[in-house]
Simulated scan of single mutants.
Amino acid sequence: MIDTRLRRWLRSLLGRVRATPESYRPRATSSKVSRLADRYDAEVDVAFQRLWPKARIYHDREFTRDRADFLLVVRGRGVMVETKVKSDPGLFRGSTLPPLLDRLQRDGRRLVVVLNQGDPTPARELVASKLGDKGCVVVWSGPEHDADLHLAVETLLRQMVRH
């Protein structure tokens, strides 16, 4: 009993200290969503390889809110790609996107948000307000949506000037 109270008192005095750094914590709020996200990332990676066989694909394995999941480099030009997984087909508001959008807005980079399902209208408005024509949201749930993903990435690649 005293040990528990002492631990609570120390926690309140010192603040809550995380035992594991953010980079080692699971990617999502639940293991089911985390497994879905990992599987979806792998499927998107395969789609990139299928659509752009000569592209270089860099995958960020560390969990951060201000860096995109992928950097896709096609013909010497790069596009950041953020994947989002929804477990239900409802609206996707993009509530987790602002730190990433702020960083990309400062850096002047292009972004494609790839969503597995749902209505992306609110997220499209959010991305457009932050990045303008340098960002877009596309729903991709398999090879039947390859044309939409290809068009979104190629549109952003055409805008870019090679440095």
Rank of each mutant, 00 (worst) to 15 (best):
T4N: 15
R5N: 06
R8P: 04
W9R: 09
W9G: 03
S12Q: 11
S12Y: 03
S12P: 00
V17M: 08
R18M: 05
A19F: 13
T20W: 14
T20Y: 14
E22W: 12
S23G: 00
R25E: 15
A28C: 15
K32N: 14
S34V: 11
R35P: 02
R39W: 12
R39M: 09
A42F: 12
V44A: 05
F48I: 10
Q49W: 01
Q49N: 00
L51M: 10
P53H: 06
K54R: 06
R56H: 04
I57E: 02
Y58K: 05
Y58N: 00
H59P: 00
D60E: 11
R61E: 04
T64M: 08
R65A: 08
A68I: 05
R75Q: 15
V79K: 05
E82R: 08
K86W: 01
D88E: 14
D88V: 14
L91D: 03
S95I: 00
L97W: 04
P99W: 07
L101C: 08
L101V: 08
D102T: 15
D102V: 14
R103S: 06
R103F: 02
R106N: 10
R106M: 11
D107H: 10
D107R: 15
L111I: 10
V112M: 02
V112L: 03
V112H: 01
V114Y: 03
V114A: 03
L115K: 02
N116D: 13
G118K: 07
G118Q: 09
G118T: 11
G118E: 10
D119Y: 08
P120S: 03
P120D: 01
R124K: 13
L126Y: 00
L126F: 01
L131A: 06
G135A: 11
C136H: 01
C136E: 09
C136Q: 07
V138I: 07
V138E: 02
W140L: 09
E144A: 13
D146K: 10
D146M: 12
A147N: 06
V153F: 04
E154N: 09
E154Y: 00
T155D: 04
L156V: 05
R158D: 07
